[in-house]
């Protein structure tokens, strides 16, 4: 199980990387390599050239802006998992990272790599879509950006063009005083890709009324989905309201069927995990320290 031959280049700048990629249809980006290398080993992917962007300084680092956290594409998943800024300001990302692969793959795997790989059951794309993150791209014409739900097109398919690469992910930061997150997934083994994953984030006021809510599903369809449960704003996220909102939002859910799980399983469990994630988020918000104290 050896990859087909390829050239390997490690450009010194992002601009040079984009130029290399733009000038060669058979070139492909490699960063952490945790999903690309198995594809290469099985010869399911056979680029003529790998452009290694892992050490580009422009792609590193985690930066907090006024209303967002910008995570450099080559940030290792393990690094993000430990990062205090992410824990405080993008708690949903911190919550799901322990479910991404396992420790050794998180030591090499990058946040941007998981986004670019666009596996429909992967956790990081789920967070990006659920929170409405922006995918920042480097192109030969300079930086560009697009909303996560436009970036993901289908299983392992994105809107990215040859000559572009993911440079960062801008996760919005909720500025409410009290927010909470919930996350559940079902997989055969803990580290396997999820049959179904659900992530929720809520913001509550002092009376525990919902000020904002985001709910997303992974593993069910051909890409991560954000469900519209805005009808929950103003409620106390009681079981009945939540059930109504989730059922209304998931009534037309397209679900995949495969060896591991039937479509009806995915649809049924999706509803349940959504409700559990919402409830967990509500409970989390009730006990999580207010923003100023985080």
């Amino acid at each position: 199980m050896k990859p087909a031959p390829f050239d390997y280049v490690r450009p010194d700048s992002l601009a040079e990387a984009c130029k290399l990629l733009a000038g060669d249809d058979d070139a492909r980006v490699i960063a952490g390599g945790q999903t690309l290398v198995p594809m290469l080993a099985m010869r399911l992917a056979r680029p003529a050239r790998l452009v290694d962007i892992l050490r580009l300084p422009e792609l590193a680092g985690i930066r907090k802006d006024s209303d967002s956290v910008v995570v450099g594409a080559t940030t290792r998943q393990a690094q993000a998992e430990r990062d205090p800024v992410i824990r405080a300001s993008v708690p949903m990302l911190a919550r799901v990272l322990p479910w991404v692969g396992h420790p050794p793959t998180r030591n090499r795997g990058t946040i941007g790599g998981s986004i670019a790989n666009a596996d429909p059951s992967a956790e990081i794309p789920l967070v990006a879509v659920t929170l409405g993150a922006e995918i920042v791209l480097a192109t030969t014409a300079g930086p560009a950006a697009m909303p996560a739900d436009e970036f993901f097109v289908g299983p392992m398919v994105t809107s990215i063009n040859q000559g572009e690469c993911v440079s960062a992910i801008r996760f919005p930061v909720w500025t409410h005083q009290r927010i909470g997150v919930g996350f559940f997934e079902v997989s055969a083994r803990k580290s396997d890709f999820a049959f179904v994953a659900a992530a929720a984030q809520v913001a509550l006021d002092e009376e525990e009324r919902c000020l904002d809510v985001a709910l997303g599903l992974g593993g069910v369809g051909d890409r991560p989905l954000r469900l519209d449960v805005s009808s929950l704003v103003g409620t106390r996220l009681d079981a009945k309201s939540a059930a109504q909102a989730v059922h209304a939002a998931s009534v037309d859910l397209d679900a995949a069927s495969d060896l591991h799980a039937s479509a009806s399983y995915r649809r049924r469990v999706a509803t349940t995990l959504c409700l559990r994630a919402l409830e967990q988020a509500r409970a989390d918000a009730a006990v999580r320290p207010a923003l100023g104290a985080r």
């Binding site: 055969a188 049959f195 039937s262 399983y265």
Partner: peptide, 8 residues
């Protein structure tokens, strides 16, 4: 006996 078969 797979998880989803049990659930279904």
């Amino acid at each position: 006996i797979r998880i989803a078969a049990i659930g279904d």
